[in-house]
Simulated assay, not measured.
Amino acid sequence: MKKLLFIVSISLGMGVTAQETKADAAVVDTTKAWSVQGQNTLMLNQAAFSNWVGGGANNVGWLAGVNYNLTYEKGKDLWENIIVLGYGQNNTKGVGTRKTQDVINLSTNYGREFAKSWYYSMGASLQTQFAPGYEDGNNPEAAKLSNFMAPGYVNVGAGVTYRPNDNFTMTLRPANARWTFVLDKDLQHAETYGLKNDGDSSLFQFGFLGTAIYKLQIMENITLLNTGSVFSNYLDHPERLVLAYGAVLNMKINKYISSNVTLDLLYDHNQIKKTQLKQTLGVGLAYNIDNGVKRSDKKDNQAWLKK
């Protein structure tokens, strides 16, 4: 009887140990397929003058924006979604309210890995603005230059994506359809944003699109996000490249306050035959979200948006 009880005890102990081992194994794998990284900002600026000999005009301004990266990575699948929205205004005494920032930039890209860090990919993007733009800043009495979806750019294409780590992503699409929409009838004139005839509401182009994102941590609490793109239209004047570069320098003061400097450069022959430049500087509230979880050994750096 004692021998029988001894054998039963050993068997029960082994069973419990096996269950604990399985439970431990299940607990170890806590990685997730989705990660969300984002920044919400509200920048304010103000100046007031009273009997100031040096002169000046009272003004107040604000700028709000969101910048999100939602990434799904599991096995050989990689799906990255980017949401960039921003709008800002400045009111100056004697001049009125003027727009200082206006951007809508949405993109999605899905890839299937075929070699280390290389993916067959396909994706789409939308670029436009929220409100009308005028020659004299945001003065409705001046000539209108733009509006929501006027222009609006939609890209749909397929190619390859190279993503060795979270800090660098490059996508090359030798087959990319690009539509330019001008849905404001006041702007539907021949040669405006490349339109062929008066009354046209869109322009179709097909060509090569290359995009790249590079995130650089300059030092603790100072990061630089670089984005660039190039498009060549196979169907008409492929030498007239559409070139764009954007930079966001983020200098974090503490968890909720930061300073942002942005720079945008654009050359598009169909808009104006000159290089366009936009620069902003602001200090204000910024709240970062980063629930990114390392899903593989190569995801070794998410410091660019850490709290």
Score class of each variant (00 low, 15 high):
residue 156 V to A: 02
residue 204 F to C: 11
residue 167 N to L: 09
residue 174 P to T: 01
residue 133 G to L: 02
residue 152 G to E: 06
residue 153 Y to T: 08
residue 165 N to G: 05
residue 139 N to L: 02
residue 208 F to R: 01
residue 202 S to M: 10
residue 156 V to E: 02
residue 206 F to N: 14
residue 187 L to K: 14
residue 203 L to Q: 12
residue 149 M to Y: 04
residue 157 G to H: 01
residue 164 P to V: 04
residue 140 P to M: 07
residue 208 F to D: 01
residue 151 P to A: 09
residue 150 A to E: 01
residue 169 T to M: 13
residue 190 A to N: 15
residue 172 L to E: 04
residue 159 G to M: 00
residue 189 H to T: 13
residue 200 D to P: 02
residue 165 N to E: 05
residue 192 T to W: 07
residue 195 L to T: 03
residue 172 L to V: 09
residue 135 E to R: 12
residue 162 Y to G: 03
residue 149 M to A: 05
residue 192 T to D: 08
residue 147 N to F: 03
residue 139 N to I: 01
residue 133 G to M: 03
residue 201 S to Q: 14
residue 189 H to F: 12
residue 207 G to C: 07
residue 154 V to P: 02
residue 170 M to T: 07
residue 197 N to F: 07
residue 137 G to L: 00
residue 144 K to W: 12
residue 139 N to F: 00
residue 176 N to D: 11
residue 160 V to R: 03
residue 159 G to L: 01
residue 202 S to D: 11
residue 168 F to S: 06
residue 195 L to I: 04
residue 204 F to E: 12
residue 152 G to F: 01
residue 166 D to V: 08
residue 131 A to C: 14
residue 142 A to M: 12
residue 146 S to K: 05
residue 169 T to G: 10
residue 208 F to Y: 06
residue 190 A to M: 12
residue 192 T to P: 08
residue 199 G to N: 06
residue 210 G to K: 01
residue 153 Y to H: 10
residue 197 N to V: 05
residue 191 E to F: 07
residue 194 G to T: 07
residue 157 G to R: 00
residue 158 A to W: 14
residue 151 P to Q: 11
residue 178 R to A: 03
residue 204 F to M: 13
residue 156 V to F: 05
residue 205 Q to D: 15
residue 153 Y to P: 04
residue 209 L to R: 04
residue 169 T to N: 14
residue 206 F to K: 12
residue 131 A to G: 15
residue 166 D to L: 11
residue 131 A to I: 07
residue 128 T to C: 12
residue 198 D to H: 10
residue 137 G to Y: 00
residue 194 G to M: 06
residue 210 G to Q: 03
residue 152 G to N: 13
residue 169 T to L: 12
residue 178 R to C: 03
residue 173 R to H: 14
residue 136 D to K: 02
residue 197 N to E: 09
residue 186 D to H: 06
residue 140 P to D: 10
residue 172 L to D: 03
residue 166 D to E: 14
residue 142 A to L: 09
residue 155 N to Q: 04
residue 166 D to S: 15
residue 183 L to V: 12
residue 135 E to M: 09
residue 141 E to R: 15
residue 135 E to I: 09
residue 170 M to V: 08
residue 145 L to V: 11
